[in-house]
Design a protein around this nucleic acid. Structure first.
Lengths: 238, 238
DNA sequence: CACATGATTCTTGCATACAAGCCTTGCATG
DNA sequence: CATGCAAGGCTTGTATGCAAGAATCATGTG
């Protein structure tokens, strides 16, 4: 991938990346406030790159900005979670369906290696989460639809946070790895129908877990859609 | 500041909306330069809202910003067009598949009215384009997946520009309306399979038209992916 | 004429200053 | 003690200034 990327606007991208990690990783609690000034000071930059990062996160649905009131980490919206589920299922299944032989051996090897690392990963949820993400992207890359994965990935940030909660509750990461393996095996053996069945089942089980958590930690989810934010901040950096 | 603005905070959105329309409508030619300073002066605002609007357009893939070089309307990327086609087909078909009776009569009526207006629209390409967009969104709304449509819609900006070119070449808008009608009739009659078939055929015909145009106006498309941009500007506002 | 080279003029990225409005807090008052 | 109210602190939105670098143009040289 030798893309002549538009020049890396380093500060903005750094702020974006770091804050996004904190939000997805639930270090920044849904509903809490983020002050542009505090964040800028903590990161040693001015408000400009911070502000632009917030704009990107807003577009991604991870934060909500209210003029002259404040910026807040958005609560997990069950509606958005469900829509992301629908979107990813539609796209990932279509991608699997569009697989054509012969498969790119290098990409297959990467997936195989990924699965191996999944098994080695013990109880480290974050590592597993990253590997899971990489696996699904690799699966779409196999069909040449990696760029569509970016779209799906960006749209499913609410789903990801919910999954982060779900995975914490269900430490049987091995089950997920097994499902991944079943999908992979069917895909490389050319049995698209079976792969499709396994993938659908896998995605729906994940979704079921997510819904189970919603009742457990309701304070992290959207309650009243018209509820106004408060300035009370739970902001801490590191 | 010379003019006291009645409503603030909308500057960024205004800039974004206006520039986006110009780009999608091909009033800003793919490959041409956009100067933040010129744009700000032309719109009577400072660079800040302009800059932030450019950031959003960048995320949407409509412009490319090169630090210390310039901002350019992105050329239509056939790869992105193809990926958008894949994405929309996957999502729209899945949406149609997920239709469950009974259908919301109000939404059905809206679609019916939309089709009526499509017939009345003569050769006005922009009006038809807007109605086409509204039709497809309405179709997804029928299945309760309107918000997924937003994602698809945002991802298919390159496809849209290509279609804008394609439609100019093919004045038989009536054909498209007929296809829309076939999809709609099958959907409301509960024949999901037929609706799916019509929709797939419709989307692929549109895509075929797009590809036909690529050879006709190659200067608007990405040629050499490593080609550097030039500062030569074709910037005009109105 | 061809070509190298330095000055100039743009460009965007970041920092800073100002504007406008909401929220909180503290004080005065019944 | 409870409550109303005003002032100050904090918020984001916008404007502006500065810096670094890339492309371009003019100039000098072979």
């Amino acid at each position: 991938m030798k893309n002549p990327k538009p020049t890396r606007q380093r500060e903005r991208h750094n702020v974006y990346r770091r804050v996004r990690e904190k939000i997805i990783g639930l270090d920044f609690s849904p509903g809490s406030a983020i002050s542009e000034n505090e964040l800028a000071a903590a990161l040693g930059v001015s408000r400009t790159p911070v502000r632009e990062a917030m704009l990107l996160l807003t577009e991604e649905g991870l934060v909500e900005v209210f003029a002259k009131i404040g910026t807040f980490v958005s609560r997990v919206d069950p509606e958005q979670v469900a829509e992301a589920q629908f979107l990813r299922e539609a796209v990932e299944l279509a991608s699997l369906r569009s697989l054509s032989t012969p498969l790119d051996e290098e990409k297959v090897d990467r997936l195989r290696d990924n699965l191996r690392r999944q098994k080695e990963t013990g109880e480290d949820i974050r590592s597993f989460f990253a590997l899971d993400e990489e696996f699904h992207r690799g699966l779409m890359d196999l069909a040449g639809h990696e760029s569509s994965w970016s779209t799906v990935s960006a749209a499913k940030s609410h789903l990801d946070r919910a999954r982060m909660l779900g995975i914490r509750k269900i430490p049987e990461l091995g089950r997920l790895t097994e499902e991944h393996h079943a999908i992979f095996d069917a895909a490389v053996s050319g049995d698209a129908a079976t792969a499709e069945r396994h993938l659908r089942s896998h995605l729906r089980l994940v979704f079921a877990d997510v819904k189970a958590v919603e009742e457990d930690s309701p304070e992290l989810f959207v309650r009243d859609r018209d509820a106004g934010p408060h300035r009370r901040s739970a902001f801490v950096w590191d």
